[in-house]
Design a protein around this nucleic acid. Sequence first.
DNA 1: TTTCATTTGTCCGTATGTATT
DNA 2: AAATACATACGGACAAATGAA
Lengths: 79, 79
Amino acid sequence: MPIDRDGKVPIYRQIADELRHGIDTGEYPAGRRLPSETELVSTYQVARLTARRAVRALAEEGLVEVIPGRGAFVTGQAA
Amino acid sequence: MPIDRDGKVPIYRQIADELRHGIDTGEYPAGRRLPSETELVSTYQVARLTARRAVRALAEEGLVEVIPGRGAFVTGQAA
DNA sequence: TTTCATTTGTCCGTATGTATT
DNA sequence: AAATACATACGGACAAATGAA
């Protein structure tokens, strides 16, 4: 689903929603690493800050654990 | 042309008129970005909101397209 | 050990959107 | 009409952590 840049939902929220959906559907199972920030930048054509916010949102929800130098890993915790 | 702060024409209108003139004369050709709000603030010594209103006026006329986080770009549309 | 690529952490500067006063 | 504050977003730069060559 493409990003709506003019909508009222922040871009980082939209990306977080897509990633969360990927977790729910099993595209990113527990233990799997999410796409890196650089990959998200390339995929969604956004600034890295925006990609970081999306991942951070999921981390704050407990859905992923971010490990410096490694990536963001799906925890397997039910939201 | 200096801004008349005590006249009957709103400051944002005066700035919009100057920018429109710049578009008409080719100082800001199609595709060119207008001075940023911050630059307008510095140039005309006005509040940012005033600069924003000037740009918005041009956007409502279809002369420029405002892109969040980027700037206001000359569309090339004849008003 | 050193070197290198990859990934996240942090900071800076700039710009627009929205709300409040 | 004007000033202020905060959120969102883009771009670049460099540091730190990790793992592999």
